[in-house]
Design a protein around this nucleic acid. Structure first.
Lengths: 121, 121
DNA sequence: AATATTATTGTAACTTTGTAGCATTATTGA
DNA sequence: TCAATAATGCTACAAAGTTACAATAATATT
């Protein structure tokens, strides 16, 4: 059921309370946490903390069994205020000497295609 | 006093509770929040949410009055578990068509120079 | 089929983080 | 000195997670 909710809104990431609301109390708060935790462990969904520490969860179309990339972009639209996965490569060019990289989590803010000034015209 | 604490540990970012501890109860919890908030507004420190939504605060050496860059890297060392600012440029190369960017917050995980396998040898 | 075992869920309590409101104390200015 | 403004402390509150344990459901075993 949790997966259904997430797929129904596949383009944007949902917070725990979003999911809870959409399930209308049919599944307990704690159970939802556990299920999301499980999905994360299995690499089925991404956990995305925003600038204020609020966390969102999103399915990733690119990520399937075996092929899971942790280091890709997440995007928050400052207009429609949705968070989503963006199909873009790991963005780090090079780090200063001495640093090695094992993962990246990156949240970009701006206008999404729907809310982009061009489109709104 | 809050600034003193942050400068004394200038290389790594501190959480609110870190700061609270180091002040040993001399300043109230809420006041610390307010001071950190103020520093953030003034662009003196950075607010850095980690992968788990826990937020850290860090001085940035590069950022001074007037010259404040929001879009730069933060780094968490998976070994010594410290969070810090990294002197690297805004890392986003290019976004898919339709997206526009106004800000980036990026947290890289890996080994810091101190904990790097080479150094530990 | 009946029972034991294991995994999932629900429930309540608790911790942590952050915020809001208001009284109290410092600071500044006239 | 005394009013006005700002900064601090304190209490209470809300939201987000976690933990522990009881209750249900699902599997397995005989």
């Amino acid at each position: 059921m949790v997966m259904d909710v997430m797929q129904s809104e596949s383009s944007s990431a949902l917070s725990h309370s979003d999911i809870e609301q959409r399930l209308g109390g049919k599944i307990d708060r704690v159970t939802i946490y556990r299920i999301l935790q499980g999905f994360c462990d299995d690499g089925i969904i991404h956990k995305i903390p925003d600038e204020n520490g609020k966390t969102y969860y999103a399915l990733c179309h690119d990520c399937s069994e075996g092929h899971h990339h942790d280091s890709h972009l997440h995007f928050r639209c400052v207009s429609c205020d949705t968070v989503s996965c963006v199909d873009a490569p790991a963005p780090i060019s090079h780090l200063p000497a001495g640093y090695s990289m094992s993962g990246v989590s990156c949240l970009v803010s701006g206008y999404c295609p729907n809310c982009s000034p061009d489109v709104v015209e």
